[in-house]
């Protein structure tokens, strides 16, 4: 309860954070209820079925965003694609944050040669050009599932989170309150969980947001060049279809514009959350005018 009011206060004091979170919340809600929305759009027919409607219908009252080359409703496609894109963001963001946090805490708290080995390893992964490798990997792995792509992307995105969090752990572990916990018989794991972790929540949040964003755009990148996982439609694949079929020349502009607008919004929202969190927890970035 106390934490909840603190969070609410933080959000109230930072318009950037509030706007970013609001946009995210709407998107997540749309994604969660996407099966229902799709059903609502289609009525008795499944709007995502091939040849559900006429092909290349222009936007109108029946089909707000028109239909695509197979006669599928674009609005329904966009809604379910948003859900897929957010899923990949959540999967990859979660994996890379968890891995990054564990590596960062072990390296930062234990120090010594463990830190040396882990930091060198993260450093190596950090400088590998990710996207060409992802292309190569997905070209080899035919019929990969969404989850597998998420894992593939997070292999390369956890080092970012690990680096930033490790630096924070290094600065926090020599605080006197850690010493006090040690003379109060607290174990290492307990110190990490109760003394360090709460102070690092904003950094972990930022790490999650940026890896999720990286994963979403990584998948869009793969889909746009036609190398995405099979069987699912994400925002990138709609763009791919639009480019491939020359949808713009056929008047089906929503197929191209709407996914891009959604991705831009998502990018803006996550960045606003990042910047907002940083402003809240880094006083040097706060305006000088005060409240």
């Amino acid at each position: 309860m106390r934490i909840l009011t603190a969070v609410l206060r933080t959000i109230r004091n930072s318009p950037k954070l509030a706007i970013g979170l609001a946009i995210l919340l709407v998107m997540v809600l749309v994604a969660i209820f996407s099966p229902l929305i799709v059903k609502g759009i289609g009525g008795s027919t499944d709007p995502l079925e091939l040849a559900a409607y006429e092909r290349w219908l222009v936007p109108g009252p029946d089909h707000l965003l028109g239909t695509d080359q197979f006669g599928r409703d674009v609005l329904a496609m966009v809604v379910s694609a948003l859900s897929v894109s957010l899923q990949i963001g959540a999967i990859a963001g979660l994996i890379s944050t968890v891995v990054g946090v564990i590596v960062a805490f072990v390296a930062g708290y234990k120090g010594g040669w463990i830190d040396g080995v882990l930091s060198t390893f993260t450093g190596i992964l950090l400088v590998i050009p990710t996207f060409p490798l992802l292309i190569a990997l997905s070209a080899y792995a035919k019929n990969v599932s969404l989850f597998q792509v998420g894992v593939m992307i997070s292999i390369f995105s956890w080092p970012f989170a690990a680096k930033t969090i490790r630096a924070q752990v290094l600065s926090l572990r020599s605080r006197p309150y850690v010493d006090l916990a040690r003379v109060s018989k607290a174990r290492d794991l307990e110190i990490i969980a109760t003394e360090l972790l709460p102070n690092l929540l904003p950094f972990i949040g930022v790490g999650f947001a940026s890896s999720a964003l990286g994963a979403i755009f990584g998948l869009v990148g793969l889909e746009v060049i036609g190398l995405g996982p099979g069987g699912v439609i994400d925002l990138g694949q709609i763009i791919f279809n639009a480019i491939n079929t020359g949808a713009l020349t056929l008047g089906a502009w929503p197929m191209f514009v709407v996914p891009i607008v959604l991705l831009t919004l998502l990018f803006a929202a996550l960045n606003m959350v990042n910047i907002g969190l940083e402003e809240v927890y880094n006083p040097r970035l706060r305006g000088v005018a005060g409240e």
């Binding site: 006197p176 006090l180 916990a181 003379v183 018989k185 709460p198 102070n199």
Partner: peptide, 30 residues
């Protein structure tokens, strides 16, 4: 049997928690 009093009264408390916690920790841990 061997307990400290540290130099910096500001850094000795974890800013995340209320000051009671330091005392309750002592009660529970010992």
């Amino acid at each position: 049997d061997v307990q400290p009093v540290f130099q910096d009264p500001y850094a000795i408390f974890n800013p995340f928690y209320r000051v009671d916690r330091v005392l309750w920790k002592a009660v529970k841990k010992f």
